[in-house]
Amino acid sequence: MGTFIQQIINGLSLGSVYALIAVGYSLVYSILLFSNFAHGGFLVIGGYICYYTLNLMGANIWLAGFAALIGAGFCAVLTERLAYKPIRERTSVTLYLLIASMGMSIVIENLFVIIAGGRFRALPPVIPTAPVDLFGLATTSAFDLLSLAAAVVFLGGLQLFLTRTKWGLAIRAAAYDLRVAGLMGVNVGRLISIVFFVAGLLAAVGGIFLSVRYTLYPQLGAITIKAFVAAVIGGLGSLPGAVVGSLILGLAEMLTAGFLSSQLRDLVVFSLLVITLIVRPSGLFGKDIKEKV
């Protein structure tokens, strides 16, 4: 029973980190209707900024975290401006955006391979990882509880941003129909930049927690595959779907690792993807997007 509760908490914690990544990815998908495969790069950028800030400027996680979030946000905006904007201004073929994002993902990853080297780096111990006793029921780590809490705070913040602010409303309108939002007087260029900034920022939060969990290396971004899978399980482009899908994945992974074998974790993830696509292909919260004829 203790193990079970512990694995549930670990699963929720891992799932909530996936959720931070999946939500940003889904947000971009809902506006521009393409899978931004460079999303994992934003996470890695966040991780490295945090790592270097901590090492160069002293171990202040608040400062380093802030720098990582803002830095990753700006890099996301920069990626959009350099690689996607020229394409989406010329054509509505989302395939080109998809390919460019794949290219950006490779570029970001390999820039870090060249600049920082391929080796694994451990973040200085700024996030407590001490075991915590949960009312005698189970033991979990402070880190798991913290990452869960951080995810809740940031996802809550995103929810407030989307429902309570002018730009948040504009983003929701644009998710319904970007062109119409543009016609209604929304500055589409700025809106897309804001969306990428938010996506990059959330990815960086995920990146920091993932680099504590698994150490930091240039290919860490590959883990976003799980976030993509979570987004598909939840329904592409749906934010609640991304969160629910992520939690399901996190739980499935941790329960598999706890009770079967940790080698099977990834296979379980992809099996869930296959099952979703067969049983309910548009995902849990997926809406059937119809093109205007």
Partner: peptide, 12 residues
């Protein structure tokens, strides 16, 4: 790989 990535982006 860096060159592959750049080629993809630049071509697009």
């Amino acid at each position: 790989m860096l060159i592959y990535g750049l080629v993809l982006v630049l071509v697009m």
